[in-house]
Amino acid sequence: MDKNEDLVWAPAPGHGPEVVYAVDGPLGRARLNRPRTINALDRASIDSLFQQLTTWAGGDSVSAVVLDGAGDRGLCAGGDVRALRESVLAGRHEEAVDYWRAEYGVNALVADYPKPYVAWMDGIVMGGGVGVSAHGSLRVVTERTQLAMPETIIGFFPDVGGLQLLAHAPGQLGTHVALTGTALGGADALVLGAADVLLPADAKEQVLGVLREDCAVSGDELATAVGSGARHSSGGSWLEENRAWIDECYVGDDAGVILARLSGHAEPAAREAASSIGARSPHSVAVTLEAIRRAASMTVGQVLAQDLALGPAFARHPDFAEGVRAQLVDKDRRPRWTHASVADVSRAEVLRAFDGG
């Protein structure tokens, strides 16, 4: 809850309460407002964000945008994939593609935003939540942050431009995160390049006060202003501590070879990563590896275009509907994937995904 009780929160004109907004001095405050679903992004939320962020970008009413999430569980649990599955099962594939096109439009707007865009990435920040936060100009994580791109477990791939961030992470850290879908704490998010500063969760009001005084404050300056508990270094990062075997195992373009290296490694954490990848859709793992390698030479906009090309292929692939069923609908956690292992996914199948096939 905000201590500033004078703020008036309201939906964007013509939209519902899925996202609410307020003007807080020079700050335009945007709050994802579906706390029962950890603020999952349905189509209404996406359309609202695009309209209001565009309005603020082109006007003089605010000097910066601050995004947060309602409730105490997190910023955003991702996109509304259950609704997307229903569209796919009903044969309405274009409905799913329209959703992704709109969502990626918001991601591109955030990445190119002409004013400071501050994301308060407290609690759960997954999938689509990464797309509306990690492309911002100032990304704030806390000791409660759980950041992940877990899409390979539902037969999909890390989209919303996230592979651009992961491809430019140090060494092979981004590849590990993309293929395993592992959840990251605040220190790991800093190492990965998905965040700029780690602050205590209870420092939010102090952060807002600093931003009201200087909308263009940097992560380092914010850490200094907040003081105790603030960090902008990688101390305490699991990724940093395990980088040696990660860089060793994840090099190359063959998912089967990578999985074999992990499985045979002396480090227990490497074998755990192999087990995690082995539980995910082999098709998703193979295509994601190719996609992150391509993303290394792309801008955010180019990766979002690649995402939009891949989406239809995944929508038509049986693993997407099956993965969502196992994880989010029936919740039996026992998906029946099309392939038995990544070794069974042919190079031709991988390349077809990039052609929308």
Rank of each mutant, 00 (worst) to 15 (best):
G193S: 13
F157W: 10
G74C: 06
A108C: 03
L328H: 12
H93C: 00
R243W: 04
S263V: 03
G323E: 05
A216S: 15
S237M: 13
L166Q: 02
F354C: 07
R139I: 07
G264D: 13
P114D: 04
G264W: 12
V141K: 04
G162K: 01
R212W: 03
V160L: 07
A305V: 13
T182R: 12
L67S: 03
H15T: 02
V66N: 01
R92E: 12
L75D: 02
L211F: 02
E18F: 00
R325G: 00
L138A: 07
V207P: 02
R101Q: 14
E151Q: 14
E349F: 07
H283G: 06
I277W: 10
A315T: 00
R334C: 11
A77K: 08
H283R: 12
S275K: 13
K115Y: 09
S275N: 11
E349S: 13
S263L: 10
D247A: 11
G193N: 12
D80Q: 09
A309H: 10
V324R: 00
V251S: 14
L75K: 05
A340C: 07
F354E: 09
Y99D: 03
R280F: 01
T288N: 05
L173F: 07
E205M: 03
D247W: 14
L259I: 11
D98A: 13
G58S: 13
A315N: 08
V350I: 15
L328P: 00
G252L: 11
D80K: 02
H176P: 00
E267H: 14
A321S: 14
A203H: 05
A119M: 05
C76G: 03
R212G: 02
A313V: 03
V324N: 01
D202S: 08
